[in-house]
Simulated assay, not measured.
Amino acid sequence: MRIAVAGGTGTVGRYVAEAVHRRGHEAVVLSRADGVDVITGHGLAAALDGTHAVIDVTNIVTLSAAAAREFFETSTTNLLRAEKAAGVGHHVALSIVGIDRINASYYAGKLDQERAVTAGEVPFTIARAAQFHEFAGQLLSSMRGPLAILPKTLMRPVAAREVGEHLVDVVEAGPAGRAPDLVGPKDEELADVARRQLRFDGIRRRVLSVRLPGTYGAGLASGSLRGGPGAIEGRMTFDEWLRSDDHRRPGSIHRRQ
């Protein structure tokens, strides 16, 4: 099967592409580095020629609902239009567990993405996953100084590598509308995992947890991002991930598996 991975060079995308190859399929990475832009549509037609399925793990880093909506609506519309023209038979969109009642900030864009995929003409599966183990480190690296202030967030993080494997499972199973959610094996709080990561990495830095106001902050603190009954549970805990080669410890030489 020829499978295109939109965002195939990102945190999850690289694991998706690896899993596609490992399962004996052909992976086509859709990224600007490869001459494909999902926002302008440049290069999509040629890249999707002969493709059987598309896994969309594109992303934008923003807390603006307007920016998130614009990005996901534009990228999804361009992908679906090109897929329909190329005869692609399956569109898989990665989304986030528990966001139905958090129609704000970044999650507003993901909900719009889900609606666009559902309303489209390409057979689809929406696959929701919990936050990645990599999430805390991404937030920490975006902040300067000895103090990191993180939003109070109850989550059930999962390894990005396992999300990549899950998305290939979803492709191989065929269009299903909605796949079972994927969550990690253990309930966590964002600030606590951030402290453990800093301690593991030997970094002295204080972490404060602050409940954000409004719908977004209430949603993060509510526990809904931990998912509900019936979810598939990942195997690797956060502490196991810290000790794995997938955790890029600051100053270390990363050895790929």
Rank of each mutant, 00 (worst) to 15 (best):
R69F: 01
T11G: 07
V5H: 03
A17L: 06
H52Y: 00
A6L: 07
H42W: 06
N78F: 14
A6T: 06
R23Q: 00
V57R: 10
A82Q: 13
A33C: 00
L48R: 13
I39P: 01
H91V: 05
R14Q: 10
L80Q: 15
Y15E: 08
R81P: 00
I60K: 11
E73D: 15
D34Y: 02
T74M: 10
N59I: 07
S75N: 08
A4S: 03
K84A: 13
T58G: 04
L63T: 11
T9S: 15
D34S: 13
N59W: 06
A46D: 05
A17F: 08
T74H: 11
T51V: 15
A19G: 09
L79Q: 02
I39H: 04
T9Q: 12
V5C: 00
I55W: 14
G8L: 09
A27L: 09
V20I: 15
S75F: 08
T74S: 10
H91M: 07
R69A: 01
V36T: 14
T9I: 10
V5Q: 01
T74L: 11
G10L: 09
A4C: 04
R81F: 02
E83A: 11
G10S: 13
T9K: 08
V12G: 14
V29F: 02
V88P: 11
S75H: 04
E26L: 06
H91N: 07
R32L: 13
H90R: 09
G89T: 00
G13V: 07
V54Q: 06
